[in-house]
Design a protein around this nucleic acid. Structure first.
Lengths: 214, 214
DNA sequence: GTCTATAATAGGATAGAC
DNA sequence: GTCTATCCTATTATAGAC
């Protein structure tokens, strides 16, 4: 039993999830064999099947764990209140922070959008991941619509705006060497994280063009 | 010989590249076996090795072909002239058009950013792809800097802005089912392509927040 | 330029001992 | 809960006939 105050005992299941998260982020679903996951954890390949039925289920468990953790942070940031623009900017700040704190997450999430074709798609674990994405998207949509209806945000195409925001927040933290070369620095560097937040915020507040006639 | 006016004869090499492009976009480098590529083309697996030394070289050839074609379109759009903001907006319109016309490209390009780890990285073919990316990035950087220096664009962090623009243009066309669910329509639908262009343009011109005190 | 045959390796998954 | 042994299939790549 987990004694309060005792050092957290990490279960084999969690160790497997940790290793799989890093590896799947690095080389994708098809690029990682269960042997490599097992070796990283220090187990035999067969032992993984005691904790997860098969490879798709392991992958879905990894994705779901990330999504649930992100959802938790985002929902708590919404609960802090404020007008829609304030909540939107805080939502994006929190999202950027979460992705910056967990270097595997942006990559794994973007990859998982592409890897539909590789996965069965109808297992309970995948449906849970899918439902979590749905709740996050729904919350963001509500927030944006609210901002438009209060007049704090201009009338915009909410679904397209949402895709833009995902692209502007998730993509850079998944961009690896490309981002590194463009920035000349690691995107996970605290200074670059700060600049990323400012970039997103300024784009929303000011746009890019200087338009004195507006 | 290619007689002018005769129906274009498609070489085996090009057929292989076409098939590999579609398949790699769908399931990634590690997710596609050469058997599947060969079957799609209607050749035996071994015949591929007559045209490409190995799998990494085939992948790099696919990526390079896409990048060169995109570079060509973008550079020609720049040559049409105009002030920096005009050229920037045309650049983004052309980029969106190119990605919309070739449904495999955005996915394959985003994937290729993540798949550094899976590839050797130092073959001549990969270096060519890398150099092409470098030229495109350099041209975009010059364009943005020019806009800032003429005062048409606000002072912005150019590298971060560039990551944002890639995220806002490439990501949606790679987002597959996710994008479809967010939009309620296929992103490659002509109407959605138009809306995507407007979304990007409006964000640059107006931002998102309504700011009457500006 | 395409084929068959083959090599050597790695993949996911199961059975059953401990 | 972890292990060894095994099964079957797929992988990249090469050799050599046609």
């Amino acid at each position: 039993m987990a004694n309060a105050g005792a050092a957290a005992e990490i279960s084999s299941r969690d160790k497997i999830l940790d290793a799989a998260e890093t590896l799947f982020a690095k080389r994708g679903y098809a690029g990682i064999g269960l042997r490599e996951v097992a070796e990283t954890v220090g187990l035999g390949k067969s032992s993984l099947f005691h904790h997860f039925r098969n490879k798709p289920q392991l992958y879905a468990a990894v994705a779901t764990r990330i999504l649930v953790r992100i959802e938790d942070r985002l929902m708590r940031s919404l609960a802090a209140g404020g007008d829609p623009l304030t909540r939107l900017e805080r939502w994006l700040d929190v999202l950027i922070d979460v992705l910056a704190e967990n270097p595997s997450w942006a990559r794994l999430l973007l990859r998982s959008l592409f890897e539909d074709d590789d996965l069965p798609g109808d297992t309970p674990e995948e449906l849970e991941a899918h439902a979590t994405v749905g709740r996050i998207v729904a919350a963001a949509t509500t927030l944006l619509r609210e901002g438009v209806s209060t007049g704090q945000l201009r009338m915009a195409n909410v679904p397209h705006l949402l895709l833009t925001l995902v692209g502007a927040t998730v993509f850079p933290f998944a961009s690896g060497e490309f981002g590194q070369e463009v920035l000349g620095k690691d995107i996970f560097d605290p200074g670059e994280v700060r600049r990323r937040k400012r970039e997103v915020r300024d784009l929303l507040r000011l746009g890019l063009a200087v338009n004195p006639t507006r």
